[in-house]
Nucleic acid binder design. Structure first.
Lengths: 224, 224
DNA sequence: CGTCATTTTGAAGACTGTCAACGCGCGTGG
DNA sequence: CCACGCGCGTTGACAGTCTTCAAAATGACG
């Protein structure tokens, strides 16, 4: 529900592509890319800018967002090391991308990939697969934003983040409360209050404001 | 190369020009598909069912949705004649699909398309493009659900529907208020009240509950 | 140790949801 | 032909959640 889980092996098999081929594709991405460092809060690309590159997070964290005319902000996704972002089929980016913390990304020329896809069905399918994963994620987010309470949104966010971290019960949040709020369609105050409430109920621990430990996953999952 | 093709597909592809190629692809879809009628509220496919077919609406209207455990429903999208739905990269459908009114859809075997895509880069790109268009729409929906008021949601829905109908200011809604509510993340009462309020402000006319005329697009668009 | 950004907490208010009743259109059957 | 039931839509009153506005607390950093 956050950015993308690493490609599930079953997807790869369903695609009729062997894991080794997939590894080969991801590996060749590394070779085609150029490492670019970005300071905290630095823009990687802007909304409506031409989409010349696809990116892979090497280190740090990235958020994508759109701004509405009156300043309201919706965050599209958070990307952690290993995640790919910025892949568009249209000419321009629909969201802006920024480094959340000091970040290194690998930038790969889009034209290189689309040229490859012209002659290589495996590459074409990989590109499609990336877009499809993005779609899955946004669909989950849509359900979350359309049909759940503040507590459910925060719980869902924490569980997803936990599942993506090494220790599946301890999270180091790279993003601020404001980022979380704009991701979940809430205000910063509601997010903060929900964190506090969860801590009082012993569902989580908050050693620091950026570190969360899950104490009761099942209770987190349930409604209310 | 698989022969899906009516007249000289290779020529069309060689031309490398988008509109004509696109027409060729869409036209060939028609030939590959089987027409299937579905009565009002009939299920076309269920959530988590294997995704064996891709569909194109010929007549009527279709909605996709997911149900949460406690009965809350989120509608993913509405599909009108000409729209394609049910294209998945994974093995199964993430949403259910149902006929809103009496509907005819064209069902195309997914395996046919993916086989074609193996050998034909243009087909591969078309499939990717369909997923990308779906992504665009869901991203818009995400912004809507995350960051806007009931009035903005209803206004956005009406403008979207109007732009899809023949007369861009007159809409025949195939779906119920409940469907609209579950699409916009609202309750049926809020949707109904918002319609009424817009009518009082002369933003719209409601000749019947299923027919809407836009009277002031610009006022509809603005915040509040 | 002071400053600034971030986070937390508090109180009041707005918006949407909930529950309930009523109205409307339409097909069925007496 | 009209009464009735039924699905759907509208309206009202009230409650609850989340937002807004405000201020205090915490933490990072020079």
């Amino acid at each position: 529900m956050l950015a993308y889980a690493p490609p599930a092996p079953s997807d790869i098999r369903a695609a009729g592509v062997l894991p080794s081929v997939k590894q080969g594709f991801e590996a060749s991405l590394e070779l085609m890319g150029i490492k670019m460092p970005h300071a905290r809060n630095e823009e990687i690309y802007g909304q409506d800018e031409p989409a010349g590159y696809v990116y892979k997070v090497v280190k740090g964290a990235v958020r994508t967002h759109t701004l509405l005319d009156d300043g309201r902000r919706q965050i599209g996704a958070f990307y952690l090391p290993g995640d790919i972002f910025g892949l568009e089929l249209g000419a321009s980016h629909r969201f802006s991308a920024e480094a959340i913390s000091d970040t290194v990304v690998l930038a790969i020329k889009r034209s290189t990939l689309t040229a490859l896809a012209q002659s290589d069905a495996v590459v074409a399918r990989e590109l499609w697969l990336m877009t499809a994963r993005e779609l899955d994620h946004v669909q989950d987010q849509m359900i979350l934003l359309g049909r759940s309470s503040a507590k459910e949104r925060v719980a869902s966010f924490l569980i997803e983040m936990a599942d993506r971290s090494k220790d599946r019960n301890e999270i180091d949040l790279p993003m601020s409360r404001q980022d979380i709020a704009d991701y979940l369609g809430l205000t910063i105050e509601t997010v903060s209050r929900t964190f506090s409430s969860m801590e009082r109920k012993a569902l989580i621990e908050l050693p620091t404001s950026r570190k969360v430990r899950l104490r009761n996953r099942t209770a987190l999952r349930c409604r209310h």
